[in-house]
Design a protein around this nucleic acid. Sequence first.
DNA 1: CCCACTGTTCCGCGATGTGGAAAACGACTT
DNA 2: AAGTCGTTTTCCACATCGCGGAACAGTGGG
Lengths: 250, 250
Amino acid sequence: MSVQSVERALDVLEALAEHGGEAGLSEIAARTGLPYGTIHRLLQTLLARGYVRQESDRRYALGGGLVRLGGIAESMVGVWAQPYLARMVELSGETANLAVLEGDFIVYVAQAPSPRRLRMFAEVGRRVLPHSTAVGKVLLSGRPASQAVAVFERTGMPRRTPNTITELTAMLAELEQVRSRGYAMDLGEEELGVHCLAVPVWDGGRVVAAMSVSGPAERIDGLDRDELAEGLRKIALDFGNELRPTADGS
Amino acid sequence: MSVQSVERALDVLEALAEHGGEAGLSEIAARTGLPYGTIHRLLQTLLARGYVRQESDRRYALGGGLVRLGGIAESMVGVWAQPYLARMVELSGETANLAVLEGDFIVYVAQAPSPRRLRMFAEVGRRVLPHSTAVGKVLLSGRPASQAVAVFERTGMPRRTPNTITELTAMLAELEQVRSRGYAMDLGEEELGVHCLAVPVWDGGRVVAAMSVSGPAERIDGLDRDELAEGLRKIALDFGNELRPTADGS
DNA sequence: CCCACTGTTCCGCGATGTGGAAAACGACTT
DNA sequence: AAGTCGTTTTCCACATCGCGGAACAGTGGG
């Protein structure tokens, strides 16, 4: 038996997140189905504690108090991911990464390096735009197309290499392909000569992170993609189950 | 009138944060004063939603669900900070930064560059160890000494330049000085020739972020430190008040 | 000034959350 | 295998708290 008020407060916070971090009370009501008075009371509580903030136009936004909790949680997720990333290195021979979407950016949260002397390295904590990375495409494919479009409109899709997808229509088609196939590829889109394959980490019906392996194009191309993706997906599923024991990867 | 259950759920989350992200039920009870049954019920609710996770030894930890909310909140805090950072640039002539503590690392969340051609640049999103940065010292000085010691024991204090403080005793004395003086300096400890002055951002009696200005040693040294610190503190106080309208900088 | 939409406040009521006690669990010792 | 101890989990009678509809207030546009 759960605590209804806490569930509702989380619903409100998630509604704000679904709106890119800020929304009006009526937008929250539309999304959560809760009465105005109830939402208002919950918001006042979160506001007093700094977890929500009210802007000058009376709209509400996620507040600074979440930054600290989110940062600690991120560190812990990175630690928990290590054994699974290690399994991915063992499976593929290449460097494995865990990434999350923070606002409009991909952030690398954890990594297990390949034992090979020629290996990929992405600085943990580094943030990149999502359009030119495999993990970025996985994460955005887990969001409604309208949210992905909003991200691309804010960030643009700057060309990183001749292979970078820079057209919105082509990108949306690519995301649709990622959805149906269950994995994304980066074929020298972020960096020439580097290929990458990423799979989603599911948590409660939502894609909360992405895991990937990356290395020199020839080596990645020398692997069977579908087979590799299947192996990575299984590991990612195990990881998602550890994050939330009842997580359903549907 | 606030919602008691939501307040308590936040108390539980903050108790976990105070314990480095994970704790047993009895530790949470000691810190919050809540009865075991109440805590357990709140934890089950947060657990079901992925905001808390239970480990194999039955201890609880902050969960992955906070990463997403924290990331969005961080982006927004960065946006809100911009006008204040711009004021700091205007005041000092140097590049201004906003940083937070995420686990054991300092993360640069926002920046306003100096208009000068010779200027400091720290990539937003970049993470560094706290011991050799002014913002790091500010943030750790806002924590109990035991927490700072725990961080240094985990990360070590690797020498970055000949000026880096690498001894625990010296560092704790330095943090004490930061507390009494109200600001921290980085005198070429992270990078030779670069000096930095940082002040705390208070939010509800807690140091939640740090703001700093940095530039070439000679230029920073050419400013009156106490005067500069006083000016930066005022701006940081304004920013803290925007984060939480009733924030008290005591 | 009026209107439409949004946000805020109030209060009677009953559903929800409380918290003490009992039961269960897990690690350790004998 | 049994006992001990500290911790966690479960239960349930009860009272408080959170609910939600209605009224009020605010805001921007015509």
